[in-house]
């Protein structure tokens, strides 16, 4: 139903190539997340799939059919924009009904679908309001409602949560995941937030400067990052990178240890350092350790009850089985 294949597609704006030749397959029903730093081409890639931008070269097929030259509306995809892009002059009802109206659907069928979507999205009481009279979360739901009524073969989301506050974001994240569970429709979701990527995705595509750095499930990427970039991008807090003598001991140009893979104690360990800032989350505490002689700062994740103070001298021990080794090019050894 929603298998999307990108074959050697490129995109240039004028003389600057934003997407170098790129291949990617998104399986039907898969929740795929494009993640990468801002400006890396995620939105461009999504808009190429949507048809809002034309590819410079290459081929896009959707459900086995060549869609490269198809108009956006003909591709059977629905999109949710970062700014929601609701029609400000229409009521919520009209907003949600708009794609159906454009499809010249029967009014009774339109009503049925709008009612059903409003029900699912808790918008029933707001159907006669205008977007301007809704909160951010509600607007986001309207945008999603407008997307689902068409029963598209795939959903495209472009950073849909980045305009929401933190608490709402977590809630909406869950709602979208639930929606996917229920509909089992292909979803492509763009974000620069690796937490969203990790929590929602079946498959993560990590992008850098238009290149795909790695494709895989969240855990694959966490456990086996292909290079330093992916290793640093996936996981929170960020992986610690250590170069020099210590890396040489492991026969690598650089080694990486995730904060959660380092033991911290008063008594003794491989490395020593002085406690700087500590961030108490309750369940966990993040310590930023200085003066280790290895890197500027080593971040360590410890249990919530561990209580070192600023200036305390501590000992660190990395778990030897999860030390990542990288060569001079940053590739995993």
């Amino acid at each position: 139903m929603g298998r999307i294949v990108l074959d050697q597609i490129t995109k240039s704006f004028g003389s600057t190539q934003v997407i170098p030749p790129l291949d990617l397959t998104i399986e039907d029903g898969e929740f795929t997340v494009f993640v990468g730093p801002s400006g890396c081409g995620k939105s461009t890639l999504l808009r190429l799939i949507a048809g809002l931008e034309d590819v410079t070269s290459g081929q896009i097929s959707i459900d086995g059919q060549d869609a490269t030259q198809l108009a956006p509306a003909k591709r059977g995809l629905a999109m949710v924009f970062q700014s929601y892009a609701l029609y400000p002059h229409m009521t919520v009802r009209k907003n949600i009904a708009f794609p159906l109206r454009m499809a010249k659907m029967e009014q009774s069928e339109i009503d049925r679908r709008v009612t059903a979507a409003a029900d699912v999205l808790n918008l029933t009481d707001y159907l006669d309001r205008r977007p301007g009279q809704l909160s951010g979360g509600q607007r986001q739901r309207v945008a999603i409602g407008r997307a689902i009524v068409r029963e598209p073969s795939a959903f495209l989301f472009d950073e849909p949560l980045s305009n929401l506050d933190a608490a709402l974001r977590v809630g909406m994240r869950l709602e979208i995941s639930e929606l996917h569970e229920r509909l089992k429709t292909t979803m492509i979701y763009v974000t620069h937030d690796q937490v969203e990527a990790m929590t929602m995705a079946d498959k993560i595509v990590v992008l850098r400067a238009g290149h795909i750095e790695q494709v895989g499930s969240p855990l694959e990427l966490y456990k086996n990052p292909r290079n330093k970039f992916v290793a640093g991008f996936i996981g929170s807090p960020k992986m610690n990178f250590i170069e020099g003598e210590e890396a040489k001991r492991h026969n690598a140009h650089a080694i990486g240890v995730r904060p959660e893979h380092i033991e911290v104690s008063e008594s003794g360990g491989d490395w020593t350092g002085v406690v700087g800032v500590s961030e108490h989350l309750g369940s966990d505490t993040f310590f930023h350790i200085h003066d280790t002689g290895l890197a500027d700062t080593i971040t360590v994740r410890a249990g919530g009850e561990v209580g070192f103070r600023h200036g305390d001298r501590v000992h660190l021990t990395p778990r030897s089985d999860v030390i990542h080794k990288f060569d001079a090019q940053g590739l995993r050894l």
Binding site: A50, A73, M79
Partner: peptide, 12 residues
Amino acid sequence: TEILEAARMDGA
């Protein structure tokens, strides 16, 4: 522009 793009996606 996004609003007009939304309309385009919606089949207008």
